[in-house]
Design a protein around this nucleic acid. Sequence first.
RNA 1: GUGGUCGUAGCUCAACGGUAGAGCCCCGGAUUGUGGUUCCGGACGUUGCGGGUUCAAAUCCCGUCGGCCACCCCA
Length: 421
Amino acid sequence: MHPFDSSYMQRLPGFRDFYPEEFAFRNYVFENWRRVARSFGFLEYDGPALETTELYKKKSGEELKTQLFRFVDQGNRDVCLRPEMTPTLARLLAARSREYRKPIKWFSISPFFRFEKPQKGRLREFYQINCDIIGDDSPAVDAELIGLAVALHRVFGLTESDFFVRVNNRNLWAEFLVKHQQPIDRLSEFLSIIDKLEREKEEVTADKLRSFQLDLASVREFLRTPPESVPGFNALFQELQWRGLETFVELDLTIVRGLEYYTGFVFEIFDRAKENRSLAGGGRYDNLISTISDGQTDLPAAGFAIGDVTFTNLLQELDHTRERIEHALRTPRGAFIVVADETRRPEALGLAQTLRRSGVIVDYSLNPAKVARQFQQAESAGAKYAVVIGQEWPQVRVKLLAERTEQILSKEDLPAVLGEN
RNA sequence: GUGGUCGUAGCUCAACGGUAGAGCCCCGGAUUGUGGUUCCGGACGUUGCGGGUUCAAAUCCCGUCGGCCACCCCA
């Protein structure tokens, strides 16, 4: 039987392999995210990929979503591969939040799993960077999170002409219901109508609104509310302005987020070219930690996540970001030792160890090969330098491959010269 | 969950009823210690899988699995 005929040799649908080229790209993205998050004073954490199903059931008591990788383990536990980070974060905080000075600013970059039909921008395993600030309910936190989310985009060269942030506050719609004498306990039901406003047919929306004794016109009228006249937003917009973020942010009352647990401020990031694509989303969830911990811990919190699939799609689609990435990944690094005289192989191996100990990336041909062949290897290994070892020993010939220039150095000087690169 | 579309060497594709081909990549070579060009040679596929029609199927039909796209959903 041909080995690849067997289904066990096939990758599971919606999962990805990361060959070195793809892994290099993934690392490039994650390393930049990590550096930016740290520059905002966020600390990295992680939790297990597998949690009890109960943890996800707890979440605001909502009905369990169907799209879970759920199974019973060999210890007869009902478990799920994590579909999102927030419940895990809440669990961690419920156990130890007292140990950390507030506000707690944490981030993680980790894989998530949802049993969905794979399609563009949506796979069954994907990565997210999750950033949260816990223990502070001020508008400064909301603005700071937007600032971080924007910075996580800008580090790849994305600008305000590539993406923008839509912000809203769910409380506005709560007030709207109150003003129209509608029951506030139906808020989440009402918000899901608003959420679908852009995609649903008008008649359908109007029909749904009828159960609230509301009409489309009054909703549309409310949507046009100018930001200046929205109470509570002044503080947030002031904070955003101080951070120079006003060109990235728009008030958009249709952004309410699908999840029930959001309590006020919410936002989503969209790309400008295809405005229906959401790159990131988040908001404030002041009650969730208390809910999940059965009241053990009660802390205000806000956060957001960026998924890697849609995000990296965008980076590959835009010429300026793609070129920037290709340039970064193509940059030559390290040294390739060319053994021109096989009797010097012991010295070459010794030099390799010395250089590696001083932090230089060093590679060489494991078996005897022609010099021309070794230079080809140096090239395809992406080395910056070729170090030729042969008759010159104890001196070596160092060639800067991109420039095709050579110089002769003593082996003692090599770590200092190569170490800078 | 529903619908559309596609599935030929690692990659991009050709052959569209008569026993599968190109380019790239990979491996080797073009005489002595210098690479991205060029030239020559080589390896690699029971045409996603299963069944059917036919003297004959990569090619037609059915099923199945997978990719892509849209709907549903979207933490």
